[in-house]
Simulated scan of single mutants.
Amino acid sequence: MKNILFIVGSLREGSFNHQLAANAEKVLEGKANVSYLNWKDVPVFSQDLETPVLPAVQAVRDAVVAADAIWIFSPAYNFAIPGSVKNLLDWLSRAIDLSDTTGASALQDKVSTVSVVANGGHEQVAEGFRNLMPFIRTQFVDQLTFSKVNDSAWADGQFVATEEVLSDLNKQAEALLSALN
């Protein structure tokens, strides 16, 4: 089975995007192995921090390299890719061997896709990812899932995916798996 690494773009405990990722994990059950990237200790990118490679950066690189694909679950912050997610992708897109800055990164040719849970800005965030992911040399699967946050979640913290969202997740999972074969 293929290994798919989930990157949850909200580091908040119990985030709505993490809850959507849990739904996607169920969709992939028996079809792929799923793991979640722990990236909370990755610092703000600075070339001054590139060498020697920080343990937190090495850990996320190793996890991405070991995966067959990455699936990002991202909120929309001000109708854009959250700065924290972009920061992580900036680190991952840097050449592993800095003696050749155009060389392969941890993301090199990695199959990738994105889902977004937010109350607005879905298309703007999607457009940002559609431009960014191929530029940083991933093989982007442009079958995305978007969801608004159900009203009750703001009170009880429980994200509820609609049948349409669950159907979209199934289609997205199939497209991702198809791109891996």
Rank of each mutant, 00 (worst) to 15 (best):
V57H: 02
V27W: 08
D97I: 05
L107Q: 11
A155Y: 10
K26I: 07
S152R: 11
F79D: 13
W154T: 05
G157A: 12
N181W: 04
L176H: 01
H18N: 12
G30T: 14
E174P: 05
V111W: 05
F6N: 01
A161D: 11
I81Y: 08
D90F: 04
S178Y: 03
V34F: 03
L54V: 06
S35C: 08
F159A: 06
E25A: 14
T145Q: 05
V44H: 13
K110H: 10
P82Q: 07
S35Q: 12
S115P: 04
F79H: 14
S152T: 14
M1W: 12
P43A: 12
F135Y: 15
A104P: 09
L169G: 05
A80T: 15
V125A: 02
T113I: 07
A56M: 00
Q19P: 12
G30M: 09
A32P: 01
S99G: 04
Q47F: 14
Q139I: 13
P52K: 07
V60R: 02
A69T: 10
F45R: 06
D90P: 03
R94T: 00
F45I: 10
L49Q: 14
I81F: 11
D90Q: 10
N33A: 15
V44N: 09
G157M: 10
D68K: 04
F79S: 10
V57M: 05
N3M: 02
V8S: 08
E164G: 10
S15Y: 10
D90M: 07
E29M: 11
S35G: 12
L144M: 15
D151N: 14
L54R: 06
R137G: 01
W39I: 10
H122P: 09
V42K: 02
P82E: 09
S84P: 00
N170W: 05
D68A: 05
L92D: 01
W154V: 12
S115T: 06
N17R: 13
R94H: 08
K2V: 14
E174S: 14
V53L: 12
S74Y: 00
Q139L: 11
E123L: 13
S152Q: 15
Q47E: 15
L89Q: 01
F16G: 02
A153F: 06
I4K: 02
F135I: 06
F146Q: 08
W154D: 15
A32R: 09
F159G: 07
Q158W: 05
P134L: 01
D142T: 01
R130Y: 00
S84I: 13
S115R: 11
A24R: 09
S147Q: 06
F129H: 07
L11F: 03
I7C: 00
N38A: 15
G9F: 00
L88A: 09
V160A: 13
F45A: 11
V114M: 08
T102Q: 12
P82W: 10
S15Q: 05
N3I: 03
V116G: 00
N119E: 07
S167W: 06
A76I: 06
E123G: 00
R94N: 04
V114P: 00
V141A: 00
I72M: 13
S15V: 12
Q143V: 15
D109W: 07
D168M: 14
K40C: 05
T138H: 02
S35W: 01
E123D: 13
I136C: 06
L92R: 00
K171P: 03
N38W: 03
G121I: 03
N131C: 10
Q143G: 07
A67S: 15
V141I: 08
